[in-house]
Amino acid sequence: MVGNLRRVSVLAMTSYPGQPPAPKRTLTRLAIASFVVGLVLSAFFVWRVVDSVPSTPSRISEGPVQLKSDGLTVYSSVPVLVPTCTAKDASGADIPLERPSGSQEFTVNGKTWYVVAQSVDKVPAQEVVVDCQDDQTSATYYAGPKLALGTFISSVLLGIGSFLLFFVIGVVLLVVDNVKRRRARRANTFPGGPGTFPGGPPPHQP
């Protein structure tokens, strides 16, 4: 009788032919792919953020200003009332300027510049000449590429959002895969449920 009980115990705890195969690790691979996509997108938007950071503008009193990217922005060294500024492109044609919508400023290496005018149209990268008339303050005026605050802010938000989105997707896929594999292991350990045996009823006990 003791031998039969041992035989039943061994049969109940071992795997049997014909059991369903263990689930593939497809979800795990998808989770890893999700993490990789999130990192790649985040790196791309970090590059966009770095690329859209304003560069130090050039002082207009030192001569023509070389624009290295599209657009033109005129700055002052201190907050001022809107001065009279004009700009000409490389061919000598006037570049229409407009006042900024609201107060705009940016700081680089501890120095702050205040936006006083921006080009109306998308001025291509070229050499421009800017002149500002200001008899009321001792402000120094500068010029540089158009300040792309929208691109900067959107790149920051998209970088953070894409990383969090694909990170959460990857974690969910790993959790689902782990749950499925646990259920599969439990089913393989007890293939027919409690009290059942492969191939028929348990052996007769004398």
Rank of each mutant, 00 (worst) to 15 (best):
L30C: 14
Y16E: 11
L30G: 07
S138V: 08
P145L: 10
L164F: 07
T189A: 14
S119Q: 08
A31V: 00
G192C: 07
A139F: 02
T84R: 09
L158D: 04
F44K: 04
G200C: 08
A90Y: 08
G110W: 05
D70M: 02
K88D: 02
L97F: 04
I169P: 00
C85W: 11
F163N: 01
H204D: 05
E127A: 13
S76W: 01
T189N: 11
D121W: 02
A43R: 06
T140H: 04
Q136D: 09
T28G: 07
V40F: 15
P202R: 12
W113T: 08
V115N: 02
F44S: 07
Q66W: 04
S119T: 06
K111F: 06
T151K: 07
L30H: 13
L72D: 01
T140R: 09
G18N: 13
R59D: 10
R6N: 07
A143G: 07
M1V: 12
I160Q: 00
S138A: 14
T84A: 10
R7F: 08
A148P: 10
Y75E: 02
R25A: 11
G71D: 09
E105L: 10
V168D: 04
N4V: 12
A22T: 11
V120D: 03
I160D: 02
K68E: 11
T86V: 09
A87N: 14
V74D: 04
V50L: 15
M13W: 06
G92I: 08
V49A: 00
F163Q: 02
L165S: 04
S162F: 10
L174G: 04
G38A: 05
G71R: 11
A187K: 15
V78L: 10
P206H: 08
T137P: 02
T56D: 13
R6V: 05
F190H: 13
V78C: 00
K111E: 12
G199H: 03
P83A: 08
V46P: 01
G195L: 14
S77N: 05
L147Y: 12
Q126T: 11
K180T: 09
N109I: 00
P198W: 02
Q126I: 06
P54H: 08
V80L: 06
G102R: 02
L67P: 04
V74I: 13
P20Y: 12
T137A: 04
K180M: 03
S52K: 11
A33N: 07
V40H: 05
G193V: 09
P54R: 14
G170L: 00
K146S: 04
V115I: 11
F167H: 03
V46N: 02
K111V: 14
P57N: 05
L39W: 08
G192Q: 14
H204V: 13
C85K: 05
P83Y: 07
F152R: 03
V50G: 05
P202N: 05
A33T: 10
F45L: 02
P194Q: 10
F106G: 07
P21E: 10
L27N: 09
A139C: 04
L11C: 12
R186S: 03
V175M: 12
S15G: 15
S58G: 01
Y141N: 08
S119A: 14
D94V: 15
G161F: 00
P201C: 01
T107G: 03
V156F: 07
V65T: 11
P191G: 13
T14P: 03
L41K: 01
Q205N: 05
N109S: 13
R99G: 06
I160S: 11
G144I: 08
